[in-house]
Design a protein around this nucleic acid. Structure first.
Lengths: 191, 191
DNA sequence: GTCTATATGAAGATAGAC
DNA sequence: GTCTATCTTCATATAGAC
């Protein structure tokens, strides 16, 4: 069992290093040499843990999804009403402002990169977005069951994605704040 | 002069081929071999016209900007009031729906890809967005001079970018249409 | 201005000794 | 489970004959 734990630990080490690398460099510019350097795992060894770069990506996405689920579970407990939960979701843009203006949304920017040619990889990334999408839809169902909750959900995703893209182009944190406030007022009007 | 025309013609041929390639594959996956193949210009010759891949990108962006300016000039004549002009801008999402769900917004997706590491290239692409931004701002100044026209401009960009990103993730043309209608109603309310 | 041949480097991936 | 050496492929880019 000790050996298996070690393997699992090294895998985690690789996945966490790749998570950052992926966000900061993107998939196509990130190399196995980069992963080796950042994770402190010798280049040759990486192939013992992951046969291909695609496999590492899938593991990173799984890891991110787990983290997202944990976060959403906490929010579900922390906020008793769906309106506050949705506002907390919007506030990611404030909390992560620095990163967003530099690297964009981790999900959106990766999809943009992979969506063009690497369509299998893109669907791997889509799974990440789906976690948010389902959670948001659930909140809208609680908040306004008579409305078109699918449309509301997509609208919220549209505006948060747009905020990330445009604020990243113009490196504009003020825009992020401005749009977030506006979006929260929209949430207040949904009934 | 004939020789110079030939050079210019070949350059154009390369730029137009790269324009499509860039949109369909993205910058990092697009190679000089691809450009040679699509443009029908022998691989070795490319370096006679452009010393680096970055130079080709700059030429493509210049070419796109020229096309955008021509389009905007036509709209300025075709539509007498700024509200209709802005609605025409939004309608790009309908006209280009097929391409957008497959490849995203040509500007947004390229920025997402280049924004992470290749910051000089990113600013090349930003010039493209600025052409739209300035034109949109001018329309809002005509439409609602008392409003915060910068905020209105960015809001429109945010929502059109978001539409592209999310509809591309979910390959959802209906979303594109739905959000466009909603956005045009928003334009109607701006005074 | 055109084309072939090639230099050079880095990428993903594998083999096999330890 | 670790590490080195290496294979293969493909990229950008250059040299130089025509």
């Amino acid at each position: 069992m000790a050996a298996r734990d070690k393997t699992e630990q090294t895998r985690q080490q690789i996945v966490e290093a790749t998570d950052n690398l992926l966000y900061h460099k993107g998939f196509n510019l990130m190399s196995f040499s980069d992963i080796a350097e950042v994770s402190k795992v010798p280049r040759g060894n990486l192939y013992y843990y992951f046969k291909t770069k695609d496999e590492v990506l899938a593991a990173v996405v799984d890891h991110r999804i787990q983290q997202m689920r944990t976060m959403l579970d906490i929010w579900d407990v922390e906020f008793t009403n769906p309106r506050d939960r949705l506002k907390r979701f919007i506030d990611i843009s404030s909390v992560e402002a620095e990163n967003i203006v530099r690297y964009g949304c981790p999900i959106g920017s990766l999809t943009a990169e992979l969506g063009k040619q690497q369509i299998e990889l893109k669907s791997t990334v889509k799974r990440q977005m789906d976690v948010f999408k389902r959670w948001i839809k659930k909140q809208f169902q609680l908040l306004a069951p008579d409305q078109d909750v699918d449309a509301l959900t997509l609208h919220l995703l549209v505006r948060t994605q747009g905020m990330s893209t445009v604020s990243s182009i113009y490196k504009d944190k003020k825009l992020l704040k401005q749009e977030a406030e506006q979006l929260k007022r929209w949430i207040d009007r949904v009934t």
